[in-house]
Simulated assay, not measured.
Amino acid sequence: MFHLFNKKKENVIVAPFDGEMFSITEVKDPVFAQKMMGDGVALKSTKDKITVCAPASGQLEVLFNTGHAFGIALDNGVKVLVHIGLDTVNAKGGGFKILNKKQGDNVKALEPIVEVDLAKLAKDYDTTVMVVVTDAAGKQITFKNPMTVALGDSLIQ
Protein backbone atom coordinates (compact mmCIF):
# COMPACT_ATOMS: atom_id res chain seq x y z
CA MET A 1 0.00 0.00 0.00
CA PHE A 2 1.27 3.43 -0.94
CA HIS A 3 1.58 5.84 2.01
CA LEU A 4 0.57 9.43 1.53
CA PHE A 5 2.54 10.94 4.34
CA ASN A 6 6.26 10.59 4.67
CA LYS A 7 7.99 10.93 8.03
CA LYS A 8 8.43 14.69 7.68
CA LYS A 9 6.18 16.57 10.09
CA GLU A 10 4.72 18.89 7.46
CA ASN A 11 2.76 16.03 5.89
CA VAL A 12 0.94 14.69 8.92
CA ILE A 13 -2.45 15.46 10.43
CA VAL A 14 -2.19 15.81 14.18
CA ALA A 15 -4.47 16.32 17.18
CA PRO A 16 -5.24 20.06 17.47
CA PHE A 17 -5.67 19.73 21.29
CA ASP A 18 -5.70 17.09 24.05
CA GLY A 19 -8.83 14.95 24.09
CA GLU A 20 -10.66 11.78 23.26
CA MET A 21 -10.70 10.84 19.58
CA PHE A 22 -13.61 8.80 18.27
CA SER A 23 -15.20 7.82 14.96
CA ILE A 24 -16.78 10.63 12.98
CA THR A 25 -19.68 8.26 12.28
CA GLU A 26 -20.73 8.74 15.94
CA VAL A 27 -21.16 12.53 15.59
CA LYS A 28 -24.77 13.66 16.16
CA ASP A 29 -24.92 15.46 12.81
CA PRO A 30 -25.59 13.53 9.59
CA VAL A 31 -23.40 15.84 7.47
CA PHE A 32 -20.35 14.72 9.46
CA ALA A 33 -21.51 11.23 10.52
CA GLN A 34 -22.29 10.21 6.94
CA LYS A 35 -18.98 11.70 5.74
CA MET A 36 -20.71 14.08 3.32
CA MET A 37 -17.84 16.56 3.75
CA GLY A 38 -15.18 13.85 3.81
CA ASP A 39 -13.62 11.31 6.14
CA GLY A 40 -12.19 12.35 9.47
CA VAL A 41 -12.33 11.97 13.21
CA ALA A 42 -14.17 13.61 16.08
CA LEU A 43 -12.56 14.90 19.27
CA LYS A 44 -13.91 15.84 22.69
CA SER A 45 -12.16 17.76 25.44
CA THR A 46 -13.02 17.62 29.13
CA LYS A 47 -11.57 21.08 29.74
CA ASP A 48 -13.64 24.27 30.05
CA LYS A 49 -11.37 26.20 27.69
CA ILE A 50 -9.08 24.98 24.93
CA THR A 51 -6.85 26.40 22.25
CA VAL A 52 -7.47 24.69 18.93
CA CYS A 53 -4.24 24.50 16.94
CA ALA A 54 -3.57 23.83 13.28
CA PRO A 55 -3.68 20.04 12.68
CA ALA A 56 -1.31 20.40 9.72
CA SER A 57 1.04 22.86 8.04
CA GLY A 58 -0.22 24.78 5.04
CA GLN A 59 -2.27 27.78 4.02
CA LEU A 60 -5.20 28.89 6.17
CA GLU A 61 -7.53 28.73 3.20
CA VAL A 62 -10.73 29.34 5.17
CA LEU A 63 -11.18 31.06 8.53
CA PHE A 64 -14.76 31.88 9.46
CA ASN A 65 -15.03 35.25 11.23
CA THR A 66 -17.14 33.50 13.89
CA GLY A 67 -14.13 31.31 14.77
CA HIS A 68 -16.18 28.11 14.66
CA ALA A 69 -14.32 26.57 11.71
CA PHE A 70 -11.16 26.83 9.65
CA GLY A 71 -9.60 24.98 6.75
CA ILE A 72 -5.99 24.35 5.80
CA ALA A 73 -4.66 23.48 2.34
CA LEU A 74 -1.50 21.38 2.66
CA ASP A 75 1.33 21.68 0.14
CA ASN A 76 0.50 18.20 -1.19
CA GLY A 77 -3.05 19.26 -2.19
CA VAL A 78 -4.84 17.69 0.78
CA LYS A 79 -7.42 19.96 2.45
CA VAL A 80 -8.36 19.65 6.11
CA LEU A 81 -11.33 21.29 7.84
CA VAL A 82 -11.55 21.81 11.61
CA HIS A 83 -15.16 22.40 12.70
CA ILE A 84 -15.59 23.29 16.38
CA GLY A 85 -18.93 22.10 17.70
CA LEU A 86 -22.28 21.40 16.05
CA ASP A 87 -24.38 24.36 14.87
CA THR A 88 -21.90 26.69 16.61
CA VAL A 89 -22.10 29.09 13.66
CA ASN A 90 -25.30 30.18 15.44
CA ALA A 91 -23.22 31.38 18.42
CA LYS A 92 -22.14 34.24 16.09
CA GLY A 93 -18.60 34.17 17.48
CA GLY A 94 -19.60 33.93 21.15
CA GLY A 95 -17.19 31.59 22.93
CA PHE A 96 -14.56 31.88 20.17
CA LYS A 97 -11.48 34.10 19.93
CA ILE A 98 -9.40 34.01 16.73
CA LEU A 99 -5.69 34.31 17.62
CA ASN A 100 -3.81 36.74 15.36
CA LYS A 101 -4.59 34.74 12.22
CA LYS A 102 -6.35 35.64 9.02
CA GLN A 103 -7.50 33.80 5.94
CA GLY A 104 -4.57 33.33 3.55
CA ASP A 105 -1.91 33.06 6.28
CA ASN A 106 0.59 30.22 6.15
CA VAL A 107 0.52 28.19 9.35
CA LYS A 108 2.62 25.42 10.83
CA ALA A 109 1.13 22.34 12.48
CA LEU A 110 0.35 23.06 16.16
CA GLU A 111 0.21 26.83 15.67
CA PRO A 112 -2.67 28.19 17.84
CA ILE A 113 -5.64 29.32 15.73
CA VAL A 114 -8.71 29.75 17.98
CA GLU A 115 -9.35 29.91 21.73
CA VAL A 116 -12.64 28.23 22.62
CA ASP A 117 -14.75 28.59 25.77
CA LEU A 118 -16.26 25.09 25.77
CA ALA A 119 -18.08 25.66 29.07
CA LYS A 120 -19.93 28.64 27.59
CA LEU A 121 -20.72 26.84 24.32
CA ALA A 122 -21.78 23.61 26.06
CA LYS A 123 -24.84 25.38 27.50
CA ASP A 124 -26.38 25.52 24.01
CA TYR A 125 -24.26 23.36 21.69
CA ASP A 126 -22.59 19.99 21.27
CA THR A 127 -18.87 20.83 21.59
CA THR A 128 -17.51 17.91 19.54
CA VAL A 129 -14.68 19.03 17.25
CA MET A 130 -14.42 17.44 13.82
CA VAL A 131 -11.17 17.17 11.84
CA VAL A 132 -12.21 16.30 8.29
CA VAL A 133 -10.23 15.72 5.10
CA THR A 134 -12.46 17.56 2.63
CA ASP A 135 -10.12 16.83 -0.30
CA ALA A 136 -7.70 13.90 -0.15
CA ALA A 137 -6.12 14.98 -3.46
CA GLY A 138 -6.32 11.38 -4.67
CA LYS A 139 -4.28 10.11 -1.73
CA GLN A 140 -5.10 7.26 0.64
CA ILE A 141 -5.61 8.59 4.18
CA THR A 142 -6.44 6.20 7.00
CA PHE A 143 -7.40 7.55 10.39
CA LYS A 144 -6.35 5.79 13.58
CA ASN A 145 -8.81 3.95 15.80
CA PRO A 146 -10.48 5.78 18.71
CA MET A 147 -8.04 6.66 21.51
CA THR A 148 -6.94 9.35 23.90
CA VAL A 149 -4.77 11.89 22.08
CA ALA A 150 -2.42 14.63 23.21
CA LEU A 151 -1.77 17.81 21.27
CA GLY A 152 0.45 16.86 18.32
CA ASP A 153 -0.28 13.12 18.25
CA SER A 154 -0.79 11.84 14.70
CA LEU A 155 -4.44 11.16 13.82
CA ILE A 156 -3.55 9.07 10.78
CA GLN A 157 -1.88 5.70 10.33
Rank of each mutant, 00 (worst) to 15 (best):
H3A: 12
L4F: 11
N6V: 09
K8Y: 06
K9Q: 12
E10K: 15
V12C: 12
V14M: 05
P16G: 09
D18F: 01
G19Y: 02
E20Y: 13
I24L: 15
I24V: 15
K28Q: 14
P30D: 12
P30A: 10
Q34A: 11
Q34F: 10
K35C: 11
M36T: 03
G38H: 07
K44Y: 08
T46W: 00
T46D: 13
I50N: 02
T51A: 02
V52Y: 00
C53T: 13
P55H: 09
S57L: 05
V62I: 15
L63Y: 01
N65A: 12
N65Q: 13
T66Q: 05
G67Y: 01
A69H: 05
A69M: 04
F70Y: 15
F70C: 02
G71P: 00
D75N: 14
D75H: 07
N76H: 00
V78P: 00
V78N: 03
V78I: 15
V80Y: 04
L81P: 02
V82I: 14
H83R: 09
H83F: 06
I84N: 09
G85V: 02
G85W: 02
V89L: 05
V89S: 02
V89G: 03
G94S: 15
F96V: 01
I98L: 04
K101H: 14
K101N: 14
Q103A: 14
D105C: 13
K108N: 13
K108A: 12
L110W: 01
E111I: 08
I113G: 03
D117P: 11
L118E: 02
K120Q: 15
K120C: 06
L121E: 01
L121G: 03
K123M: 09
Y125I: 01
D126E: 12
M130S: 09
M130Q: 10
V131G: 07
V131Q: 08
V132T: 15
V132G: 07
D135V: 11
A137L: 07
A137T: 09
G138L: 11
Q140H: 11
Q140Y: 00
Q140W: 00
I141F: 03
I141D: 01
I141T: 01
T142M: 10
K144F: 03
N145V: 10
M147L: 12
T148D: 11
T148C: 01
V149L: 09
A150V: 11
L151W: 00
G152Y: 04
G152E: 09
L155T: 03
Q157L: 11
